[in-house]
Write a protein that binds this DNA or RNA. Structure first.
Length: 548
DNA sequence: ATTAGGG
DNA sequence: CCCTAAT
């Protein structure tokens, strides 16, 4: 009963929500809590959802926001990215700092309780679900979606259980508060998270078929909130932390090590490639074992590239020392040139980069500095392009007609790894996750211009993305094809709970397969008659089967 | 410079 | 994603 009052309070008083945001360290509370009429993007969205779980209003709001967000000026992007930076920074701190406590909490018994919640709920009717809902959250719900109810209740329970160590216990599907005094903050946090996550999720359920547009938003919020929206949204922070750590310390691919050691061995002494290989292997595996204990505080990438750092085994793993065979690194001069003028304008981005990486930079790699400077180089161009382009009609109908703000547009430098080379060469290894919008653009481009005309596609459909070379497009397409064909036949087995990093956009995969088949069919006859049609010399389209 | 493929 | 061979 007390909980009831508490939740009610929490719902009405927005500043408490704001408090939650701070506690989470990620929810932006820059938007005015009350009005939020023309919010720029998902931040405001999250907030609104957090404040009121009024789904109807929400969906309407979404529909309005989407287009307005899409045509937002470059100015918008700037502020947005700035905010992201601020958002990321606090996230990192508390996460790692508090990991010890929360981890303990998690490991205690989340799985069990969640399981219990689901099992119980499965047998209930909608009506009963409603009751449970009311008992759980202290208010009625008009939602008739059974699945949603179950999810939400389950989440409520698990969330509460999340803080149960200090605040709640669960009895007979009801929440019972154990002690309030010192757990107050936790209560709010849990409740807030729950509302927010649920709101977002339900929203997603509702508008799911609005397709990628929404998905995009969903993903965005998800990222910003630290994965709150994921199915098992309890323990999300820790998961995120873990994943991040894992990502950070991910060792270079086996192949790279092999390759590199091979190269080096060739260079130094033409013999015993095999032995070098095996040597290169050993430390790696042992490192992998030793990792978990100590990795957290280290910046993996930087460390990995150093000779001495691999566990102090005395064995030198020749990670990177290798002469660059091609591409003399044209950028360097361009960088220097760009720096003075661009700095002022792009200071925000740089700042973000520095803030995030922060102290890690001090271990002296000049390369890192260079990189940080170099990054914004593409940023302004990007934005300008983005604001003025985007006239592509995309009458493909369905889901692709919508416009969107690409969240990755402002994610300028998240995953750049610099690999210093002995001879002063610097090699950057990018990894940018493909966003839904990018994938969609790619698909659309392929459908328009045909697979294979990557440069065309890049020029026309990917004008705004300065990264993503035509090769990238090709690769991505290849992967998409693989995915689209691999996924469909095995809907059961592959559906197993483990999709940590793959947000399968089913609709897109379908499109991909369609296109693939079309291309295949188009290209086969084309091959047989190819010479003829080529001789005919169609001036415009040539032999390409690119049309729909 | 672009593409296709392999890794 | 990177690298290369082939156009």
């Amino acid at each position: 009963m007390e909980v009831e009052g508490l939740l009610e309070n929490e719902k009405r008083e927005t500043h408490i929500v704001a408090d939650t945001g701070q506690a989470l360290g990620c929810i932006s509370n820059e938007v005015s809590p009350s009005g939020m009429p023309q919010l720029e993007s998902s931040e405001g969205l999250s907030q609104s959802e957090n404040t009121e779980a009024d789904t109807e209003k929400l969906s309407a709001y979404l529909e309005e926001t989407v287009p307005s967000g899409a045509k937002s000026s470059s100015d918008d992007h700037v502020t947005q990215s700035g905010r992201v930076g601020e958002c990321l920074k606090p996230l990192d701190g508390p996460l790692e700092g508090g990991s010890s406590t929360s981890t303990g909490c998690i490991s205690s018994k989340p799985d069990f309780s969640k399981l219990k919640g689901e099992i119980c709920l499965d047998n209930l009717s909608i009506k009963e679900l409603h009751e449970v809902f009311k008992a759980t959250f202290g208010r009625d719900t008009t939602v008739k979606d059974k699945l949603w109810l179950k999810r939400r209740i389950a989440m409520g329970l698990t969330n509460s259980c999340d803080v149960s160590a200090t605040t709640f216990v669960i009895k007979d599907n009801k929440l019972v508060k154990k002690d309030n005094e010192d757990g107050f903050n936790n209560v709010n946090l849990g409740a807030g998270k729950e509302h927010l996550a649920v709101a977002v999720e339900y929203n997603e359920d509702l508008l799911n078929n609005l397709s990628s547009q929404i998905d995009e938003h969903q993903t965005t919020s998800e990222v910003r909130l630290g994965n709150n929206v994921v199915e098992n949204n309890f323990a999300s922070e820790d998961l995120a932390a873990d994943q991040r750590a894992a990502k950070r310390v991910r060792k270079p691919t086996k192949r790279y090590i092999e390759e590199l050691s091979e190269a080096e061995s060739k260079e130094y002494s033409g013999r015993s490639i095999a032995s070098t290989k095996s040597i290169g292997f050993r430390p790696l595996s042992s490192k992998a074992h030793a990792r978990p204990a100590r990795n957290v505080s280290l910046e993996g990438r930087t460390v990995i590239t150093r000779l001495d750092s691999l566990g102090g085994f005395g064995i030198q793993v020749p990670c990177v020392y290798r002469i660059r065979r091609s591409r003399p690194r044209k950028n360097v001069t361009a960088l220097l040139k760009f720096h003075p003028s661009g700095m002022g304008m792009t200071a925000t981005f740089i700042k973000k980069g520095f803030d995030v990486h922060g102290s890690q930079m001090d271990n002296g790699s000049m390369n890192k500095v260079l990189e940080a400077k170099s990054t914004p180089e593409q940023a302004p161009e990007q934005f300008v392009a983005e604001s003025k382009k985007e006239t592509t009609p995309t009458d493909m109908g369905q889901n692709m007609g919508l416009k969107y703000v690409d969240p990755s547009g402002d994610t300028s430098d998240d995953n750049v790894v610099t690999v210093p080379t002995a001879k002063g060469g610097i090699r950057r290894k990018h990894h940018r996750a493909w966003t839904l919008s990018e994938v969609m653009k790619l698909v659309e481009g392929v459908s328009k211009y045909g697979a294979g005309r990557w440069s065309e596609i890049k020029r026309l459909a990917f004008a705004s993305y300065s990264y993503r070379t035509s090769v990238d497009l090709k690769d991505k397409w290849r992967n998409l094809l693989k995915a689209s064909f691999a996924q469909t036949p095995t809907d059961k087995g592959a559906n197993s709970r483990k999709h940590p990093s793959m947000p399968i956009p089913a609709s897109i995969l379908l499109r991909v397969r369609e296109l693939a088949e079309m291309q295949a069919q188009a290209s086969l006859p084309n091959l047989s008659t190819g010479k003829l049609s080529a001789c005919g010399g169609g001036s415009v389209n040539e032999t390409r089967p690119g049309y729909l």
